[in-house]
Design a protein around this nucleic acid. Structure first.
Length: 865
RNA sequence: GCCGGCGUGGCGGAACGGUAUACGCGGCAGUCUCAAAAACUGCUGCCCGACAGGGCUUGUGGGUUCGAAUCCCACCGCCGGCACCA
């Protein structure tokens, strides 16, 4: 009895990881002549431990990278840490530890865990966004955006907790209240920096040449929300603006395409005199996708925050309007936008009226929370007959409903009897001179009329808003701006970067940014005049850090530049980007915007960052639901790796189901995969041993079957890897091992046939991307010196992937009745004769004459009787 | 509410419009063992049948087709995204 070394994954994985580290075999060189392949994963937030979702994402990506490397590409698979963000501050407050120390500790631990996975990380390219050698360039990019008019400062709403005296992230608002103190959260306008992503709305709608999931393109398209229609200017007679109240008056929302209100004939600021008494005419533009329904306007609705609300409110309505505004100010956006069935429309009339620019008709003005200041112009023309929301609003408050669009052939009906609005396009009716204008022309004709009469124009509107990048927090990249009493907001000169984030700060219970309490940070001098000035204490949204890290990977150690285009052009665009679908919109849209904006600043030559995108699925807990600490169903990768090894964890994760679907974790499932790896181990070590007993180089008849099997497997597994179908790739490799075991049991001498040896080599190579450690070990045991991960992917001979004998299925009326074992090149006539001669077929046909004979060559025959 | 996706054995899941249930888990039986575990071998969709064999089966109901898990229509259920977008 010979004792062979047992498969001991933990020990051999440590050994090989150390050797790979020494040789840095996964570090891609810029001057490598092979075609490049940029294999990117979404870098992790250093939360403390790598979780099973990271393993899933990174294993699937790593398999692809290893496969492409063996396919002859110069693969880089960089990794880094998205290291700024809120959790570090939370941990700091909770555990009295500095965010920097907490973050760097976590990174150190996660680096080790990332190594343990056996992924081919290109470590020399690592980036850590919270370190100055990275955020210097994040700040530099902000300055480029500022210089090129892409960054601007304006009042923007934030969640405000009046007790903590601080802004809150959405995550910190629980049921409309501050998560720390329970105080109801208010919306508050504060000065913040934004980026003009809306400038790129149209270009971002194009995905030419991009291999992205349809679902993601659709989500981005819907997020951008382009709609075509018209801007129509309604007018109202209002009291001349009085003295400025509460510090703001009709502050035009300058950042959208349309301005909400301007006084006819000039700027409101200039035209309005602070005199008392007197009236003036103001224009209130609305955006509508249905200008053809203009004759159906029976009311007009403003967002409660609309700057003209106060002046349009009749004195006797003031109290009711104030009360309603106060009510909506405390409603969260979610509540306001809720479409729960029972939720009735709310709103109050202002007591004033506006004039329809096309019909000249006066209609009452209301405010209602279903109109949002952030979309369009913050004003809606109410057309209850043809818009469902307006319909419900009119029903709620007894406002008239007038039908102005009718589909062809439809009889006139009384809108009072309708149950819903009629939103289909049709011909205009009850519309004066426009009556009878058919649907396709109606919108265009009304726009032409409005343009000719100077009361409106065709317009495009977007749902997407500009990107708010200010965060009133410490743990982020400081915004490189200085406020000078004389010169206002002044950018920090590039040669003075970075604006260093103080390493240690104090978190005071006021909740104000700790940076305000660091005098040496706060106080500085104006870059223009040298007089005392203060720094911006807001930091950048961490989405900024992650909107360009893939550029930095091209040359991360360059201390003089964020990047140089020689290197970027060599590696970018990313060939494969794998990450979670939760980033389908924000991160992926921001990164695309960055690349386009930087291109237009002359800083990049590419237009899109990611050529191919893939979203992995989600690993669920043992109970089949999403893992969460509160449910206690979290799988800790370290625990499983300690028992079965990284290879088994990798292979099991991939075997669970299709890579883009994820699935529930099953402890028995990983045991099955572990058993498989043991069978692989035994198959190979047993063959080596028996081969050593002498008589190598024999040839046995079964060798031909082995050879055929080997070629078939190369073809099959290659196709599966190409399509990231790892579950079926592993199924094929399991079949391969089962078949080799069986053939060898039938013909023990097979182990001495070089075709069996070749099959074992091929098995190792095909399995290598999935389970890099065991295959490396056995590869060397099989007598090879180089790393298996530097081997070329094997080729196959198509002629050897087909069998001499095939099975042709014989159906009678579509039901399988017999199977014929015939030569692969059998003729239809022969199949027909054999099929009709079959006893089973004859019994099924009952002697009836075939009406029809369908033949699918080499597969199936169907006899119809 | 809108948009997207998905419903296949006891379970995870396979299946170019052409042999449904590959591969794995679980279960049953056996080999080895004093015994058990591990390992290995065989069987394992459901129903009838001793066998031979027959019938049924991809959420439900229709349709297209020689042939449908796959395509079309309607319904039921589950999951994800967006949230009154004018």
């Amino acid at each position: 009895m010979i004792t062979r070394a047992k498969y001991n994954p933990v020990a051999l994985e440590e050994k090989w990881q150390a050797r790979w580290d020494e040789r840095d075999i996964y570090a891609a060189r810029d001057d490598d002549p092979r075609p490049k392949f940029y294999n990117l994963v979404m870098f992790p937030y250093p939360s403390g431990d790598l979780h099973i979702g990271h393993w899933y994402n990174y294993t699937g990506a790593d398999i692809y990278g290893r496969y492409m490397r063996m396919r002859g590409h110069n693969v880089t698979q960089p990794i880094g840490f998205d290291a700024f963000g809120l959790p570090a501050e939370n941990a700091a407050i909770k555990r009295n530890i500095q965010p920097r120390a907490w973050t760097l500790d976590n990174i150190a631990r996660m680096r080790e865990q990332l190594k343990r996975m056996g992924a081919g990380w290109d470590w020399p390219r690592e980036v850590v966004t919270c370190l100055p050698d990275y955020y210097t360039w994040t700040q530099w990019i902000f300055l480029q955006f500022f210089k090129n008019g892409q960054a601007y400062r304006t009042k923007a709403p934030a969640n405000w907790c009046p007790t903590c005296n601080t802004t809150l992230a959405n995550e910190q608002v629980v049921n409309g209240a501050c998560e720390r103190c329970g105080t109801p959260v208010e919306r508050r306008e504060i000065d913040q920096w934004l980026l003009r992503i809306t400038d790129y709305a149209d270009e971002l709608l194009h995905f030419d040449g991009m291999d992205w999931p349809e679902k993601t393109r659709l989500m981005q398209t819907n997020w951008i929300g382009r709609s075509e229609g018209a801007e129509l200017r309604f007018t109202a007679r209002v009291p001349v603006a009085g003295p400025i109240k509460n510090g703001k008056r009709a502050a035009a929302k300058t950042e959208n395409a349309a301005t909400p209100a301007t006084v006819a004939g000039g700027e409101s600021e200039n035209a309005a005199t602070p005199a008392t008494g007197g009236y003036e005419q103001v224009e209130i533009p609305v955006f509508t996708t249905r200008p053809d329904t203009i004759y159906g306007v029976t009311f007009f609705v403003l967002a409660p925050e609309h700057p003209l609300v106060e002046r349009l409110t009749a004195p006797e309505r003031r109290d009711a309007v104030q009360a309603y505004i106060e009510q909506t100010r405390h409603e969260s956006e979610i509540e306001r936008l809720s479409t729960e069935k029972d939720r009735a429309k709310t709103g109050v009339p202002l007591g004033g009226a506006v004039t329809n620019p096309v019909t000249g008709q006066q209609v009452p003005v209301w405010i209602a929370d279903y109109v949002l200041m952030g979309y369009g112009t913050g004003a809606v023309m109410g057309v209850p007959a043809h818009d469902q929301r307006d319909f419900e609003f009119a029903r709620q408050f007894g406002l008239p409903i007038v039908e102005v669009i009718r589909e062809e052939g439809e009889p006139a009906t009384d809108p009072a009897t309708w149950e819903t609005a009629k939103t289909a396009k049709g011909a205009m009716v009850n519309s004066g001179a426009f009556d009878g204008t058919p649907g396709p022309e109606a919108i265009r004709r009304v726009i032409e009329w409005a343009e000719a009469h100077g009361v409106g124009k065709g317009a495009v509107n977007y749902r997407m808003r500009d990107w708010l990048i200010s965060r009133q927090r410490y743990w982020g990249a400081p915004i490189p701006i200085v406020y000078c009493p004389e010169h206002g907001a002044v950018p920090v000169p590039e040669d003075q970067l970075p604006v260093m984030l103080p390493d240690e700060v104090e978190f005071k219970p006021t909740g104000e940014s700790p940076l305000r309490y660091v005098p040496e940070f706060l106080h500085t001098t104006c870059p223009i005049c040298g007089k005392p000035a203060t720094r911006e204490t807001d930091t950048l949204d961490t989405f900024i850090c992650s909107a360009w890290y893939f550029l930095r990977y091209a040359d991360p150690r360059d201390a003089q530049h964020a990047w140089v285009n020689d290197k970027v052009d060599e590696w970018l665009p990313v060939d494969m980007y794998i990450g979670g679908a939760e980033h389908a919109v924000m991160h992926l849209l921001y990164a695309r915007y960055f690349v386009k904006a930087l291109r237009d600043m002359g800083l990049l030559n590419i237009s899109e960052p990611f050529r191919r995108l893939y979203h992995q699925g989600i690993v669920l807990g043992r109970d089949g639901v999403k893992m969460s600490k509160s449910r206690g169903n979290v799988i800790a990768p370290d625990d499983v790796v300690n028992v079965h090894g990284a290879d088994a964890v990798r292979a099991y994760l991939m075997f669970m189901g299709p890579f883009d679907q994820g699935g529930p974790w099953n402890d028995k499932g990983i045991e099955g995969v572990y058993r498989y790896l043991n069978r692989v181990w035994t198959l190979v070590t047993d063959a080596i041993e028996r081969r050593g007993e002498g008589g190598e180089g024999q040839r046995v008849a079964a060798g031909a079957s082995v050879d055929r099997l080997r070629h078939k497997m190369i073809a099959r597994v290659s196709g599966e890897y190409d399509a990231l179908r790892y579950n079926t790739a592993l199924a094929a490799l399991m079949e391969f091992v089962n078949a080799l075991n069986k053939l060898r049991d039938e013909t023990p001498d097979l182990v001495r046939d070089d075709r069996f040896a070749a099959a074992l080599d091929t098995l190792m190579v095909l399995l290598a991307p999935m389970t890099p450690f065991i295959t490396e070990e056995l590869w060397h045991e099989l007598g090879h010196d180089e790393s298996i991960h530097e081997q070329p992917w094997p080729a196959y001979d198509p002629a050897l992937t087909v069998d001499d004998l095939i099975t042709v299925v014989v159906q009678v009326n579509g039901k399988v009745r017999d199977r014929l074992e015939v030569a692969a090149d059998v003729s239809e006539a022969d199949v027909r004769a054999l099929a009709l001669a079959s006893a089973r077929v004859q019994s099924a046909t009952g002697g009836r004459e075939p009406k029809k004979f369908v033949y699918v060559p080499g597969r199936l025959a169907n006899i119809v009787v």
